[in-house]
Amino acid sequence: MPPIPLHAPVQPLVSPAQAGEGVFSALVREKGQPVIQSALMRPDSYDTGFPVGVVWMKQHALRFTLHPGALEPGGTWAVPASITPSERVGLVAAYNGGFKVSNGDSHGGFYLDGRTIGYLRDGAASEVFHRDGSLSVGVWNEDVRMGPDVVGVRQCLVPLVRDGRVTGDVYNGGTETWGFTDGGYAAVARSGIGVDRHGDIVYVGGRLLTVQSLATLLQRAGAVTAMMLDINLSWPSFISYDATRTPSDPVPHNLVNFVRAATRYYDGSSRDFVAVYARP
């Protein structure tokens, strides 16, 4: 594997920046290389107790697998709604899925191993999981589409970032575009995922983010296409796993102070999620 440099710092949302704000460090190393990196920053000048996490993942060093939840999207699947003990070797990260598919909140569908819940909607922002373990993020039937190599699709709303620019929907869309929030507040727990121009993956999540702040951070972190994942207090979650002591049972750690325990995907999840593994 060629050397992986640290990602360039992300311009913080708040100026002046604090020391180290937006600066990446290794979150997960494989063979000494920082295959997953993270940076922290403030969502605004007031809510300093609720940092936002920005994660960058080196695509060619990782593989991504889609899991259904026990209740969402619904149905019975061969893939479990947890990361079982037999699936923990090589595990390096996991993160949340999107809005509910079963009631139409996601404005799109969920596809896994030949079966669809809801329907795959043209124009929907989509995570696409390929047979080789790679992940694409794009607009369905424009940037990404069904093919023999596709094993999973997770759609959610419309793009936050397109062609490297924050979309007009970010500034103009209301609840009909971005969904209802806890208490009707604009700044709530939010998460999003994107892909940069090299094909590497960017995740942003935190306890207090507006749609605009989420999109801006994804774009500043290099995403050329990005989409919303789940929102509101119980759902956003990025977890890294430390296999230093026990490779068969790595220790989970939350990226920031999400409300759910870091063991949530070991214990079983009511909603779909993504597990990330180091490639051999």
Rank of each mutant, 00 (worst) to 15 (best):
D200K: 06
P250H: 05
V170T: 05
S126V: 06
S240F: 02
E142M: 00
G147R: 00
S134L: 06
V166R: 01
P252H: 14
D200V: 05
Q212D: 13
D149M: 02
T246V: 14
D200C: 02
N141T: 11
V188W: 04
P148A: 15
D122I: 04
D169K: 14
S134R: 08
G123P: 04
V188D: 12
T175W: 01
T244K: 04
T175K: 04
H130F: 14
V150W: 01
G179I: 09
G183A: 13
L120A: 15
G183Q: 07
N232C: 04
D230P: 10
L229T: 10
L120C: 09
L217F: 02
G174C: 10
G164I: 07
P252Y: 06
Q155P: 04
L233R: 15
A186K: 13
T225Q: 10
L217T: 04
Q155L: 12
R121S: 13
L233K: 08
A215N: 06
D122G: 13
S248C: 02
A223M: 06
L120P: 05
G205N: 02
L218F: 08
N254P: 07
P148E: 12
V144R: 11
G164D: 02
D169Y: 09
T246N: 11
A186H: 08
G205E: 07
V151C: 12
P148L: 07
T246D: 14
D200Q: 07
E176G: 15
S237A: 15
R131D: 08
P236H: 01
G184L: 12
F129S: 03
P159N: 04
A124M: 12
R207H: 06
V188C: 10
V188Y: 00
R121F: 13
P250D: 09
G194Q: 00
R154Y: 05
P250W: 05
D132A: 12
G192S: 11
L160E: 03
R121L: 14
D182Q: 12
G183Y: 09
P159M: 03
Y185Q: 15
W140I: 00
L120F: 08
R197W: 03
V150S: 01
V144I: 04
N254L: 11
M228E: 04
I239M: 04
G174H: 03
A187I: 02
A189E: 07
H253A: 11
D149V: 02
I193Q: 03
W178V: 14
S237W: 10
V251Q: 10
D249M: 11
I231E: 11
G147W: 00
V170G: 01
E176H: 10
G152L: 07
W178E: 08
D149G: 03
G138F: 07
V161Q: 01
H130S: 09
H130T: 09
V211F: 01
D169R: 07
Y241F: 15
G123S: 04
T175N: 10
W235T: 00
G184R: 09
D163T: 15
N172K: 14
V139E: 05
V150L: 00
I239E: 14
G152T: 11
